[in-house]
Design a protein around this nucleic acid. Sequence first.
DNA 1: ATGGTAGCCTGGCTA
Length: 261
Amino acid sequence: MRIATWNVNSVGARLPRLLAWLDNNRPDVLALQELKCTTADFPAAAVAELGYEVAAHGGGRWNGVALLSRVGLAEVSYDLPGQPGFPETEVEPRAVGATCGGLRVWSLYVPNGREPGHPHYEYKLAWFQALAAATTLELATSPQRPFALVGDFNVAPTDADVWDPAVFADSTHVTPAERAALARLLDLGLTDIKPRALKGEPYTFWDYRGGSFYKGQGMRIDLVYGNAAFAASVTDAYVDRDERKGTGASDHAPVVVDINV
DNA sequence: ATGGTAGCCTGGCTA
């Protein structure tokens, strides 16, 4: 089975690239983030022509996540149990889970955090707490079933995952509290499935501004966290760095993982 | 080059 995750930064703007990428790479399951469209406006018919069922969860202008599958799509869950909102009462579409064939998977778009100390940063940390609680429940339900959290975590796990740690000092994505939130997920039994470094870079995201991509100024923030059954079945993992090239690219590249499931 | 780019929906927010 091939599973991939991709922050497309607007599924509408990315539709030609998305359809071509699906056709060329044929993932069994694709998790999308930053749809930037409503659930009703998701191009379900276009991906259905390629054989994919869809669980889309959109809100319109920002956020939005989806799971595409051609190996079944069951037990769909929208939002994490107890997912915090921003503001408090507004739960944003940032999580969708489903069972696809023998795999249980969640597509996640973790809040950015903006700046340490900002209310959005506290929201991000609270969001991770809900994610840990949800993961605990999922792992207890079916401990032996392959399980993975995939998506845009908006945290670089280590200093090796940012192009220049000095540039990010005192910024979000690298703070001890954010990395502790990732460590908590590892403590629950998940493994960071690290993609092969292509061109010497482990990155999955390059800012649009300032020619970051061509300068090698990226970050690895799109992650695949799998349980033991998932991690043991991995045969390959890589970043499709070429998808970041050219006009009309997302600022994130797809992360692809092949598993024996 | 006195912030840079892209995407949403129209001057500003978000990343």
